[in-house]
Nucleic acid binder design. Structure first.
Lengths: 188, 188
DNA sequence: CACGATGGCTAAAGAGATTAGCTTTTCAGC
DNA sequence: GCTGAAAAGCTAATCTCTTTAGCCATCGTG
């Protein structure tokens, strides 16, 4: 029988497709194996265990986010860049709810994840630098920004906002609050 | 042999103790059974399945939060009440990280959960009413407040804030941002 | 004191993760 | 082209966890 020609990357691809279609709960090694046309134990040739697969998925998602956010803020500065970052962050979450949910809030113990998280954080800090924030102040601000954006994304994706009021309006209020309250006043 | 004298409440108690000690991952029917001195299948006399157990846990946690927040804002009004709400919310998350994590961001399909979530939301809306916010504006504001507070709590609990800067300082910045940027200016 | 509801138990099946050990394919180097 | 080792598959088997079925003991009520 010919080989399936799998690789760690291919396994992650299949897992992501699976998640996109059926949600995080459906992520199981048998399901991934089925989708790649391979017996379950064969996956262990490419991935140490299901935990590592989850880590690889999270890493991929964080890289996608970093690319997206990085591109969105390119050529922008100040509050405009912050708004762009917030918009694209939410958009990713809404367009790929399960991928977003697959991203753990913390790097936890994995160095590769910490690396990917660090790069995303770098983008955020760069944006804040463009608003005149540096050092400790930038860290505190980045935390608040991240908390607000991530909090909104998580709640929206999970269907946590039950009432009928328009979500875009709510988010614009959050953007305004962040820009007005969190960033130093512009004096140019 | 004498009966164990279990009840749905007792099962949830044991499950909460288990979660507190060993984290969400450790929540398994065998573990709960072991802790209550009963064989695993016996639990099905009190709880439909592990999903229902999770729902009951979430419900309990949300009730605890509602009590706590309700008590904290009692006798306070305006921004002071908002700050009190934010403080006690974060404190609960930090003191009971796994319980907090056991709370799903959305009621999803369960009516009992929706009920508990509704009561918590009521407290938040009451606090905002004390700030002069009502109707649609209050809903948008509540969403932003919740996003910020929940986002911070989730990230902190998961260890998502890696850097060494003081977390209390970050949170005070979030409090200030919310009070200054999200609430209507005080004019008394 | 009998009886029905309730709570508990054992046995067993099914799903998923993981390990062990075997076979086949691939391919680099001769 | 050959060969031998590494890589990639596979089957079989184990373990844990969930869940169902069916049996028995206990408890409280009339």
């Amino acid at each position: 029988m010919p080989r399936a020609g799998l690789s760690p990357t291919g396994v992650v691809d299949a897992a992501l497709a699976l998640i996109d279609e059926q949600g995080l709960e459906a992520l199981t090694l048998s399901a991934v194996a089925g989708r790649t046309g391979v017996a379950t134990p064969s996956l262990y040739k490419h991935v140490r265990n299901i935990g590592e697969l989850r880590t690889l998925i999270a890493q991929r998602v964080m890289e996608e986010m970093t690319d997206l956010v990085g591109t969105a803020v390119m050529g922008r500065g100040g509050p405009e860049a912050v708004i762009a970052l917030m918009r694209v962050w939410r958009r990713y979450a809404v367009e790929h709810p399960f991928r977003y949910a697959a991203m753990p809030p913390a790097p936890l113990t994995d160095p590769a994840l910490a690396e990917a998280g660090g790069r995303l954080l770098e983008v955020v800090l760069a944006v804040l630098r463009g608003c005149g924030l540096d050092g400790g102040a930038a860290v505190h601000t980045a935390r608040c920004l991240r908390a607000a954006v991530h909090g909104f994304a998580v709640l929206e994706v999970a269907g946590g906002f039950g009432l009928s009021e328009d979500l875009d309006t709510s988010y614009r209020l959050l953007e305004k609050t962040i820009v007005d309250g969190l960033l130093p006043a512009e004096n140019d």
